[in-house]
Measured scan of single mutants.
Amino acid sequence: RNRTTFSTFQLEELEKVFQKTHYPDVYAREQLALRTDLTEARVQVWFQNRRAKWRK
C-alpha cells in the first residue's frame, strides 16, 4: 500500500477533531471518514500517528 497523501482540507478536519479529543470513538471516526473521503482505517491510523507526534 502506498503512503496516503492528505489534502489541506482533510488535515484541517482531522486536526479540528484532534483538538477536541485525542481518542475519537468509532462513530466520530466514521463521520470524519465520510466527510474527508477517507476510510475509517486511515482515520484511525492518522490518530495513532498524531498522538505519537503529540507525545514527543
Rank of each mutant, 00 (worst) to 15 (best):
R1F: 15
R1I: 14
R1E: 11
N2M: 13
N2A: 08
N2H: 10
N2F: 12
N2D: 15
N2C: 01
R3V: 05
T4C: 15
T4G: 10
T4E: 11
T4M: 09
T5R: 08
T5L: 11
T5S: 14
T5H: 10
F6N: 03
S7K: 11
S7A: 05
S7Q: 07
S7H: 06
S7F: 06
S7Y: 05
T8Q: 13
T8I: 08
F9W: 11
Q10M: 02
Q10H: 06
L11R: 08
L11Q: 08
E12W: 05
E12Y: 14
E12N: 06
E12H: 06
E12R: 07
E12P: 00
E13Y: 02
E13T: 05
L14F: 04
L14V: 00
L14Y: 01
E15Q: 01
K16V: 07
K16H: 03
K16Y: 05
V17Y: 05
V17P: 00
V17G: 10
V17M: 12
V17N: 09
F18I: 00
F18R: 02
F18Q: 01
F18M: 05
F18T: 02
K20L: 14
K20E: 12
K20G: 07
T21I: 04
T21E: 09
H22F: 06
H22A: 04
Y23T: 06
Y23R: 06
Y23S: 05
P24Q: 01
P24S: 01
D25Y: 02
D25M: 00
V26E: 10
V26K: 10
V26N: 10
V26R: 12
V26F: 07
A28P: 01
A28S: 08
A28Y: 03
A28N: 13
A28R: 04
A28L: 10
R29G: 02
R29C: 10
R29L: 13
R29Y: 05
R29S: 05
E30G: 09
E30M: 14
E30C: 15
Q31F: 03
L32F: 08
A33D: 00
A33P: 01
A33L: 02
L34C: 13
L34N: 10
L34K: 15
L34T: 10
L34E: 15
R35H: 12
R35L: 09
T36I: 12
T36S: 04
T36D: 00
T36W: 03
T36R: 01
T36H: 02
T36M: 05
D37G: 12
D37R: 15
T39Y: 02
T39H: 06
T39F: 00
E40L: 10
E40T: 11
E40I: 06
E40A: 08
E40D: 10
A41E: 14
A41F: 12
A41D: 10
R42N: 15
R42Q: 09
V43Q: 01
V43I: 15
Q44I: 06
V45A: 12
V45K: 07
V45C: 09
V45Y: 14
V45D: 13
W46S: 00
W46E: 00
W46D: 02
W46F: 04
W46K: 01
F47W: 01
F47K: 01
F47A: 00
Q48I: 07
N49Q: 13
N49F: 14
N49D: 13
R50A: 11
R50T: 03
R50H: 07
R51N: 03
R51D: 05
R51S: 02
R51K: 02
A52E: 15
A52G: 08
A52M: 14
K53R: 08
K53E: 15
K53D: 12
K53L: 07
W54N: 06
W54D: 15
W54E: 15
W54C: 08
W54S: 12
R55E: 14
R55W: 08
K56Q: 09
K56F: 11
K56H: 15
K56I: 02
